[in-house]
Design a binder for these strands. Sequence first.
DNA 1: GACATGACGATTT
DNA 2: GAAATCGCCATGT
Length: 109
Amino acid sequence: MEASFFDNVFEVAKLIPKGRVTSYGAIAAYIGMKRSARMVGYAMNASHSDKSIPAHRVVNRNGLLTGKHHFNGPDEMEKRLKAEGIKVKNDKIINFDKHFWDPATELKL
DNA sequence: GACATGACGATTT
DNA sequence: GAAATCGCCATGT
């Protein structure tokens, strides 16, 4: 099977180091489709098939936990991030810039 | 098989 | 500068 867009998203998501977060657009851009940020989020929905995917480390460009509702509970995502040392307030990651993990920069292909 | 929608982001008006 | 629109792939109805 050819690696689809979703598959790439899953693999990159799995590569996110603990205590780091990234954005949908960053993953999409790393794959080569920065315009497909929406699909990245949708892919995360499909990630339910793979529990190894730390979808909680993927947030929107503003560091906002837009997809927290898709977890076991609306507080699950926030709780997990806090457990990794990431502070979340008002559904937003504090110091998002410091926790931001860009695959294009960190992995650098 | 066609239409609508979905965890977003950038570009254009 | 803010609001509106386009772009993208896959899934569900």
